[in-house]
Amino acid sequence: MGFTTWDILRGLLLATRWTLALSAGAFVGGVLAGLIVLVLRVQPHRRLAWVARIYIEIFQSTPLLMQLFLAFFTPALFGIDVPAWAAAWVALSLWTGAFLAEIWRGSVEAVPAGQWEAGGSLGMSYLEQLRHIILPQALRIAAAPSLGFMVQVIKGTALTSIIGFVELEKAGTAITNATFHPFTVYGLVALIYFCLCYPVALCRGWLERRLNAAHLAH
C-alpha cells in the first residue's frame, strides 16, 4: 500500500495543531512566568532580585532538552505520572519566561532614569511608577524582540518529541518510519515550520517599524 504526498501532508498538518497549541500555551505561560521574574528582578530588595537572577541563569545556561527531561522524569521519581504534554508545557513555559524576563529587563532599563525620578517626585510609589510610567514605555521597546522570541518557542517545541509528545517533529518521524520517504517527509516538516515562523518574523519587522515611527513622532 502506497502513501501519496497528500496522505503524508495530511498527517503532518494534523500534528501541526499540537505544535501550535504547545507554542501558544508556552508563550502564555512564559509571559506569566516572565512578568513575575521581571518584577522580582527590578524591584529594590537585593535578595529577591538574586532569586530571579538565579532562575534566569539556570534556564538560560542549560539546554532546553535537559529541562524537558527533568520536567518529565523528576515527578516520576516521586511516583507522580506526568503526561508528556504537561511536562512539555511546564518546561517550555519556564524556559520562555527566563528569556522574556531578560528581554523585558533590558527594556525597563532602557527607559531613562529621569522617568523614575519624575514619577517619584510626584509622590508615586514604586509599583505605581512601574505600572503607569515605566512599563507602558518598556512594552513599546519590548514588543518586537518578544515576538521575535516567539520564533524560538515554535522551533523549541520540536524538542518535546523526545519525551514522547506527538507534535510535528514526532509525527514526521512516525510517518517516515511507515513510508520510508525521509526526504519528502522532513522536507514537508521543514516547510511547515517555515510557514509557521516566517509570518511571525514578518510581524516582528512590521511592529518594529511601526513602534519606532511612533517613537520618533514623540
Binding site: E117, A118, L122, G123, M124, Q137
Partner: peptide
C-alpha cells in the same frame, strides 16, 4: 517620603515628561 514629595514639587533640567 511619598507624603513629603506631595508637598515639594520638582522641575528637572531635562523636563522628564512622560512621552507616552
Amino acid at each position: 517620603l511619598r507624603l513629603l514629595r506631595q508637598k515639594v514639587g520638582m522641575i528637572f533640567q531635562q523636563f522628564n515628561l512622560f512621552p507616552h
